[in-house]
Amino acid sequence: MGWYVGRRLLQAIPVFLGATFLLYLMVFLMPGDPVAGLCGDRGCAPAVASALRSQYHLDQPFLVQYLLYVKGLLTGDFGTAYSGRAISEVIATAYPVTVKLALLALAIEAVFGIVAGLIAGLRRGGVFDGTVLVVSLLVIAVPTFVMGFVAQFVIGVKLAWLPTTVGGNQTFTALLMPAFVLAGVSLAYVLRLTRTAVAENASADYVRTATAKGLTRRRVVVVHILRNSLIPVITFIGADLGVLMGGAIVTEGIFAVPGVGNTLYQAILKGEGPTVVSLVTILVIVFIITNLLVDVLYALLDPRIRYV
């Protein structure tokens, strides 16, 4: 088990380096002069501009810039945003909100997806199954931003059941609607995945053997069918945390959530390279770590993996 985790950890290192390099390269390749963005519309004096260049290592070759950046990352120094705020400070205010939102969305997709998927998988071909499948297809087909606006308009404005925007009010009720919108597509995938896994396991030989032992249907379903179907589902849900945090860019925009997505979007619009790279790098790290955890979880859930 320890070796399994160790090997995964080692494999994550090149992925981390590669992904951050890729991001850095992408931002570096962005057209336009970052210093021009820094100085605003009026422009800076040449002396100020060159001082800024050396402050942000812009006068160094690309590779040196990247290595300096990684060095900063490893020492916890994310650099300074163009506004003068430390990027780590920006991260510290934006991330907790997004994490809260993403975890809430994760809980929603897990609970609703698994329950509906289990029922649909057990009664494959039935009315519930059909309905749920059509709805899940619709949820996948309608883009999140459409869903977001419609939900905001109908539930928030017309019915006034939930607050329309979040802003500084990051309570559970305020986050509920954005979380549902954020979870939408993933929920549909969880549902379909659970349904397939349940339907497959329900006809597995060991389930028949369990029934032949004299177990009640309820016990067969919970202890054997559901438990085994959860292996791929939990793997999916785990890996989804990073995806949800990345996907928050649209949802947070619609509901004015002051999280990573919003901050990131503003930084992109302003062409703030260092801030963009740092925010996305954290997302990538979260993604890599959750994937690592999922691998461990997978090994815990499936004893066959542990000994490979």
Binding site: G18, A19, I268
Partner: peptide
């Protein structure tokens, strides 16, 4: 596998936004 993992680690829409915003 490693190279695809690197590209996989950056969410699709996010990467596209970063790349395209420059244009």
């Amino acid at each position: 596998s490693r190279v695809s993992e690197i590209f996989y680690a950056v969410p699709l829409v996010l990467a596209a936004i970063v790349l395209l915003s420059g244009f």
